[in-house]
Design a protein around this nucleic acid. Structure first.
Lengths: 199, 199, 199, 199
DNA sequence: TTCTAATCGAGACGGTACGTCAGGTCTTCTC
DNA sequence: GAGAAGACCTGACGTACCGTCTCGATTAGAA
């Protein structure tokens, strides 16, 4: 067993910082989660923060990923459509969650000017969620439920883009009926699609 | 017509400022278009800038809207699908345009922390483009090409969200085939949709 | 008449800053006169301070020079010895002054690690005071009161070094009798000096 | 004698630390000898340094005293003037030594804001050197070489202040001839002095 | 023409946050 | 117990932008 030398990192610090960042980002509006403000609220030294995180947004992102640790699994025994609705519905619910959406919006905005955030967001948030939907769709293609020519990436885009789009532009999220309609439309669209430039 | 007394506003100033902001935002990366930098580059006084614009992002937005003044019209004599492809294709092209996309991304990020930008962006960019697509879809419903139960807002979301989504997350834009597939999928999906929770 | 463009510099700011620095350096001990503390005490923005002064020590130096603006003049109609005693006595008095000595000590300490302070201190404080004494001595040589071989620089050193030496090392300053004795010793020494390496 | 329990203090550590401090203070300029830098250069833990020394300046001072361990003795069989010249010349030489002067300047500057350094510097450097000169002068008074009214403290000041003064202000040190002239002037001045306020 | 009201430029000023550096203290493991 | 490693806090540093402010210089219609 390898026990590190020196004083061990305090887990309390990490928690206080991440929680403070989330609190500030949530009820202080975006731009409130500065390193200074986080340090003050968490009662932690700014220096320590800079030692562990490269920016305020990185902290917010960490809090975001912390709060959403539920594994992305397909409900056992579900049909393809049920699985799709589960995945997409969960995503919509998440983005519309008042404790998650604002953080995500914050982080996406920050990712515009911070490649590191962009990468982390992509790797740890976007890609896993796209993958879950994509796998379900590809299984359906393999099972013959969807035609072989189905463009999975495009279908995934159609299914997952709207919540981000509405989030970033400050539009109200789709309600449950809207979500169901979206899934239904894309599902039927994939099945009904004919060759694009046919006779 | 009552022409004001005093020195009239110099149009040269507006142009220099807007151009400088766009240049900075484009090749300096986001965050480069600060008021200070714009003032220096445009060789205009900071005071003057503050007199006419509330923020740097507002200038970038103005430049964005300036550069995209093409009227959003339905090509005369086009079928519904052709019209849809034209509208959606134009939008995708715009967002993928290296002289437009970055500015837009910039402005959307700024809109997160600036309600005024959010409003202006919504009113002058998002809403008109959604409206064009929505009108086409509603016409199709009226003409019996699409079923009456079609949820137009959802269809619009599916059609227009992907480019913004990919733009904000730094993903490569869909290529032409992808765009065509998307339009086709949604169109077919709307036509083929059955009642969501049928027996 | 050249009237500057732009908002004119506020003289109140300069005064408040310089006074605050002096106050802090005097009753807060050395090391108390940081830029932060000065800004807070003077109720002036740190930015503004950095615009006009390169360091806290520069401000203290400015305050020092401000408070000692008395022209260095030889009393009219004085004999050489009287003039010397006046000059040297004034210097001793200044350095022993509780409102001047601590500032000077502060600045000399800072000059060790700041060439700009070193230069300014030299040019605006040390050199003028050495010069006054040197001129008086040289006049005495010219008048035949002192032998031609008198090493003026050495005599100046002997006369002016002690107060700085005692100041820097925290020793009590010489009292009036000590000052008189010093002047007398050096004066007589210069007159009585024989060739250093005689037969 | 009871030898302490536990690991004894490593003399290697002391040497490495002191040497590192001296090296940094000499070729890194003042301000370079921070505790951090010393720890890094000496490859010693900061904690260890803080355990044995109260400040970086204390280390520099220790190095200074280490490097100048020559006993201050009067050359046997010397005349008073020879002894004085020896003492004062040694002091001048020391202060002008490029391996000693900068350290001393450093320490004096630090003593301004650190009473402990001030005390140590006084007790272990200044006082012994003043004492050596004072004893010689007092012996001369006792022997009748100098008048009884000689103010020894003042004479000591005149003899030893100049090198410190020039050191602290960054002035070039006096050359050998200057030193000889200084000693000669003060010696003759002490012998020739008449009552200060005579008729 | 002269007045007058506006624009525009220059620059001072107060703020807030940034990211870094050094000083100290404390905790833990290793020798 | 000495020493190494390193986490942590404090406080100051100097910089970048922000937004406001006070000026003078310029411009062109209105009196």
């Amino acid at each position: 067993m390898v026990s590190r030398r020196g004083r061990p990192r305090s887990s309390a610090v990490r928690e206080k910082v991440v929680r403070a960042a989330a609190d500030l980002a949530l009820d202080g509006g975006p731009g409130a989660a500065t390193v200074d403000a986080i340090a003050k609220r968490a009662e932690v030294s700014r220096t320590t923060i800079y030692k562990w995180w490269p920016s305020a947004s990185a902290i917010v992102l960490e809090g975001l990923l912390d709060s959403v640790r539920d594994t992305i699994v397909r409900p056992p025994g579900s049909t393809t459509v049920q699985a799709l609705e589960h995945h997409v519905g969960a995503l919509f619910g998440l983005v519309a969650d008042p404790a998650v959406g604002p953080l995500l919006r914050n982080v996406i905005a920050a990712s515009v000017s911070d490649p590191a955030i962009e990468r982390a967001l992509m790797d740890q948030w976007i890609t896993p969620r796209r993958a879950a939907v994509a796998v379900t769709l590809r299984d359906a293609v393999a099972a013959g439920e969807l035609p072989a020519r189905t463009d999975v990436e495009v279908a995934v885009d159609a299914l997952v883009s709207p919540p981000y789009y509405r989030l970033m532009l400050g539009m109200a999220p789709l309600d449950d009926a809207g979500v169901a309609a979206l899934v239904n439309t894309v599902w039927c669209g994939c099945r009904a699609t004919r060759k694009v430039s046919g006779p």
